[in-house]
Design a protein around this nucleic acid. Structure first.
Length: 262
DNA sequence: ATGACCACATCTTGTGGA
């Protein structure tokens, strides 16, 4: 059986706990990286997921941000916060090692800053955060182990990943500097799992709540799974669970998953 | 149609998201 690893920005875990449970039963992932919990650790509905057989690691924050990892397999070396800036209080990074019978896979749940409006302080923070991520990723890649960086990167990598490139031209998710920073990260040795498994353009992971974006398929691809060479060698499948966006009171993001032969 | 949402906090309105 392959190891199925997913990422999903749930836009409040309290508002989406039922959806997550429904999707866990339907998709049967082994590991799930969640983002935008919008709650503190104590309020995370861990029991609901433990009942379904998952171990839970949470790095929460009141009202904003918050990331978690759910895993059917044991979680080891659980480590919150992206190194490189001790003054950064935003809960956007959680790393852990998943132990399988056939070796370990390191997984990070990432909620990269949005960065709007650009230019400005928030955009500066985004670019600094991306530089920190690159530096940390370089260290992790040196382990030469299967590594998966999974999350909401808030980056549209190319014009193929947006319904209307002109409409997003000045947005922090699509600015040339943002895309260049993402490429810098990828060029360190990562594989964009979805783009490797699918050549077709205009496949999305996010549709805005506004302007009928979902009905018109006006989406963007910003939730990614980046694989180290050792993980990329094991990639068997990758897809987007688009139908979840059609559920009642959905998140504006949908799950994206990979299957690794381990 | 120059429009149109959602979640949170505690304020019935402002902030942040993407």
């Amino acid at each position: 059986m392959p190891l199925k690893i997913a990422t999903w920005n749930v836009n409040s875990i309290k508002a989406r706990a039922e959806h997550v449970a429904t999707w866990l039963k339907e998709a049967e992932p082994d590991v799930v990286c969640l983002q935008e919990l919008k709650c503190v650790d104590e309020n995370f509905p861990a029991a609901a997921f433990e009942e379904l057989g998952y171990n839970v690691a949470v790095h929460g924050q009141k009202t904003y941000n918050g990331v978690a990892i759910l895993s059917r397999l044991p979680l080891e070396d659980v480590s919150p916060r992206l190194p490189g800036d001790k003054s950064d209080e935003q809960a956007r990074y959680l790393e852990a090692v998943v132990s399988t019978t056939n070796g370990a896979v390191r997984v990070a749940s990432i909620y990269l800053p949005n960065g709007n409006p650009a230019p400005g302080e928030k955009y500066d923070y985004k670019l600094k955060w991306m530089a920190r991520l690159g530096k940390h990723a370089e260290k992790l890649l040196a382990y030469e182990e299967p590594l998966v960086l999974a999350g909401d990167f808030n980056v549209i990598p190319s014009p193929d990943d947006v319904h209307d490139a002109k409409a997003w031209a000045d947005d922090a998710l699509f600015l040339p500097e943002t895309r260049a920073a993402f490429q810098d990260l990828v060029y360190r040795g990562f594989t964009d799992a979805f783009r490797t498994a699918h050549a077709e353009p205009h496949r999305y992971t996010f549709w805005d709540y506004q302007r009928g974006a979902w009905q018109k398929d006006h989406g963007i691809r910003i939730d990614h799974l980046l694989l180290s060479p050792q993980a990329a060698d094991r990639l068997q499948a990758c897809d987007i669970d688009k139908h979840v966006r059609g559920w009642e009171r959905p998140s504006d993001h949908v799950p994206v998953w990979i299957e690794l032969g381990v």
